[in-house]
Each structure stands twice: as C-alpha cells, then as structure tokens.
C-alpha cells in the first residue's frame, strides 16, 4: 500500500522570504496592484470615442459590472461615488484569489489571514465613519443599536444582538468568509494533488490507474476554484456596499 503523509500545515501556507519581509503573499499582493494599474493604463491609451475593444473593453466591463451588479443593486444611485473604491476592492481580491490556481503561484494570497483581515478592518472603519458622518454620532448609534419598529421591551434583547452583529460579527465574518473559503480551496487542491501524485508513483502497479480518480477531482476542483475566486471577490464587494449603504441610509 502507499504511505501518504499530509505535509505540515505551515509548509503549504507559509512561504520563505524572497528578500527580507517580502514573501510570496506580498509578491501576489503587489502583483495584483500592478496588474490592475496596467490594465487601466493600457485601456486609457485607446481612443475613447471609438467603440471599446480589447483591454479597454475589459476595463469598461469591470466598471459597468461594479456599477450595475454591485452599486445599483445595493446602494442605488447615491452610491455611485463608491464605485472606484468597490472596484479597487473587487479587483484586488480577485487578483489575490486567482493565483491559487495559476501554476507556479499555486497560492491564493487571501488564504493568509493578513489580506482579508486588513480589508475587513478597513471596511469596518469606513462604514462606521460613513454612518457617523451621515447621521451624527448619536443618530448612527441610535439607528444601529435601537432599530425602529421594535417593541420597547424587546430592546433588552435586540440591542446587544445588534451591537455584536454590527461591531464584532460583521468584520469578523467578512474576513473569515474570504479567508476560510480560499484556504479550504487551497487545502483541498493540495490534498487531491498529493493523493494523485502518491497513487501515480505507487510501487504497487495496480494502484496507478486508480490515481485517475483524484486527478479528475483535482481538475474539477480547479475549475470550481475559478468560480469561487470570482464569487468571493464579488460577495466581499457586495457586502461592503451593503454595509456602507446601510450606514449611510439606515431606512433602506
């Protein structure tokens, strides 16, 4: 039989420094920023009066996707100034997710807690600031902690729940959702890759054809991760929009 030992978890999640403090995660994050900027720079070099094609088309599709699919669906027209922020967030997360399935990278940057944690904390700060700015300190806390339309006696129950939900659970679940999704995908890919490798190299010749099964599973999971990478970036941007919209206009 084969002896399959799962590697130490840190060996598949933590990476050596390429140069001091700069490891693979940092490389992916920097590349994500550079690639986004490059796409938009190239798009801007085209004549804007012509019908867009090629890379400009890509950039405009991204902008319109964020406008129609994220901002208009959650915040409405007054949320349109948030489009560049949400688009940056979407692009950055997507380009951090997608290296999980690109050969030689094989590591989503968001599978380390650092990236989602930073983004979620930033979103938390932003929606609280927006809420305070739009409704004032008292108004914001009143509309968050004492939602209207609730019988007075229930506030004993509702207020602590709302406080925990808005102040603690939201950023935590935002970060954990992205992080855990990407890490789970990464570990699944590692598992099936190791399993098919071990089966293909088994001493027992009978086991070699069996290695096809985990290999197909690996291919299926890779294509599934393509979807997950997009979906998680979309959901992160969407929830950000929902939180900001809810803080700016609590009546919706």
């Amino acid at each position: 039989m084969i002896a399959l030992e799962f590697p130490e978890i840190n060996s598949i999640l933590r990476w050596k420094d390429l140069f001091p403090t700069f490891n693979k995660i940092a490389l992916i994050a920097v590349l994500a920023a550079v690639i986004s900027i490059t796409i938009f720079m190239l798009a801007l070099r085209q004549d804007h009066r012509q019908a867009p094609k090629g890379i400009r088309n890509l950039a405009e599709v991204i902008v319109e996707f964020i406008e129609d699919g994220v901002v208009m669906q959650t915040m409405g027209k007054e949320g349109l100034p948030w489009t560049p922020f949400l688009m940056t967030m979407f692009l950055f997360i997507y380009l951090c997710n997608v290296p999980g399935i690109i050969p030689f990278f094989q590591m989503p940057a968001t599978a380390r807690m650092a990236v989602p944690l930073f983004l979620a904390l930033m979103v938390w700060v932003i929606y609280n600031v927006v809420g305070i700015k739009h409704q004032g300190v008292l108004g914001y806390f009143k509309s968050t902690l004492f939602p209207p339309g609730v019988p007075k006696a229930l506030y004993i129950l509702v207020t602590p729940i709302e406080f925990i939900s808005a102040i603690i659970v939201r950023p935590f679940s935002l970060a954990v959702r992205l992080f855990a999704n990407m890490m789970a995908g990464h570990i699944l890919l590692v598992t099936f890759a190791l399993l098919s490798e071990a089966l293909f190299q088994a001493k027992d010749k009978i086991l070699i054809p069996v290695g096809i099964l985990p290999f197909f599973m690996l291919i299926f999971l890779t294509s599934f991760e393509v979807l997950v990478a997009f979906l998680q970036a979309y959901i992160f941007a969407m929830l950000t929009a929902v939180y900001i919209g809810g803080a700016a206009h609590p009546e919706h």
């Binding site: 669906q73 679940s173 954990v176 959702r177 992080f179 999704n181 979309y234 969407m238």
Partner: peptide, 25 residues
C-alpha cells in the same frame, strides 16, 4: 434580483460553516 439576494444569503449562511472550518484548523 433574486440571484443577487441569493448570493448574499448564501454568504451569510456559509459564514457559519466557515467558522466551523476555522475552528477545525
């Protein structure tokens, strides 16, 4: 509209399972 709301709902529901996964790790 239904699809958008569905994804939001899935995201909220899924968070619980993912917290379980983090606890596992």
């Amino acid at each position: 509209m239904v699809r958008t709301t569905m994804f939001l709902g899935i995201a909220f529901t899924e968070a619980l399972a993912l917290i379980g996964f983090v606890v596992f790790i």
